[in-house]
């Protein structure tokens, strides 16, 4: 008889179910985002399931293809994002997860570079610059996690069997969480840092040349990304489901509000802002955990 406390449920069944649900959750979140943005602008807005209509429609369209390479990279991008989401759900090494998530960006960039289109070329260049901006912050945050928990393993943040034993990361790393909020618009491709897919300037950046089902696949990958990023933030309060989901919702709302009240920035402004504010937050937080002695060598 398997009960709800059985570790098998939490170690295998739950992550597997979540991995299947991830694109649905991600898509719904994007739908909510569009609805909410519309309401903020006093519009009716599209229905919440609009992202799924979009994807399904794309699967019913004709393919117009430039070459094979960029299609391969698009699928590789999707698979890598799914893989890193899976690794996150199944509690793998946080450092490896971060690098795998970075690999998905690399595939997207390679996809953009491997067609001779000025839009995807510029888009890829900008995508790389965005990666240059957010990846160091993300890795430093991971390093802080490791300092506090003593390990890169997610299990160290929260063991399945004894959740009450450890202190929530939020208490020790509040500023690191803010740094994550800072890079949230980059990862979710939202204003003010939606520089790579600035559709008014450079069509859709690296995904300009995709049509039909491959564009659909890239969109699904984006659903996964939304889920991944929010789940990552959820790690900051794993002890209590209500607070954990509240934290994710807060991050999501934060990104929507920021998206609506800011205009797109230039690349150099983005780099300067994120580096200065992000590094400052991290250093202050580091000083805090060093002074209070809440770190493990």
């Amino acid at each position: 008889m398997i009960t709800l406390d059985d570790p098998i449920i939490w170690k295998i069944a739950f992550p597997a179910v979540m991995l299947i649900l991830a694109p649905i959750i991600g898509g719904l979140l994007i739908g909510i985002d569009r609805k909410l943005t519309a309401r903020l602008q006093n519009r009716a807005g599209p229905p919440i399931v609009q992202p799924f209509y979009d994807v399904l429609k794309l699967f019913g369209k004709e393919d117009k293809i430039v070459n094979k390479t960029y299609l391969v990279f698009a699928v590789a991008y999707l698979l890598t994002v799914v893989l890193s989401t899976g690794l996150l759900l199944f509690h793998y090494d946080l450092l490896v997860i971060t690098f795998m998530f970075g690999l998905s960006f690399i595939f997207l960039v390679l996809a953009g570079y491997s067609v001779r289109s000025q839009f995807s070329y510029v888009g890829s260049n900008r995508e790389l610059l965005q990666m240059l901006t957010y990846e160091p912050i993300l890795l430093l945050v991971v390093f802080l996690d490791r300092l506090v928990t003593g390990s890169f393993q997610i299990d160290a943040i929260w063991s399945f069997t004894e959740p009450a034993k450890t202190e929530p990361l939020l208490y020790t790393l509040p500023l690191a969480l803010l740094a994550l909020f800072l890079i949230l618009p980059i990862q979710l491709r939202k204003s003010p840092y939606d520089i790579a897919e600035a559709h008014q300037e450079i069509a859709q950046g690296p995904v300009t040349e995709y049509t039909g089902k491959f564009l659909g696949l890239v969109t699904i990958a984006h659903f996964y990304e939304v889920f991944f990023v929010l789940w990552f933030i959820g790690l900051y309060f794993v002890q209590n489901w209500a607070v954990r989901i509240g934290l994710m919702a807060l991050a999501f709302l934060f990104s929507i509000v920021i998206d609506n009240v800011t205009a797109r920035l230039r690349v150099d402004q983005m780099i300067r802002q994120v580096y200065i504010i992000g590094l400052l937050l991290i250093i202050v937080n580091l000083a805090y955990i060093l002074i209070t002695g809440k770190w493990i060598a």
Binding site: R43, G45, D54
Partner: peptide, 14 residues
């Protein structure tokens, strides 16, 4: 508010 019909302006024929 044309976007309530799902209209999105893409600026890209593809």
């Amino acid at each position: 508010d044309a976007s309530r019909f799902g209209v999105m302006s893409t600026g890209n024929p593809k």
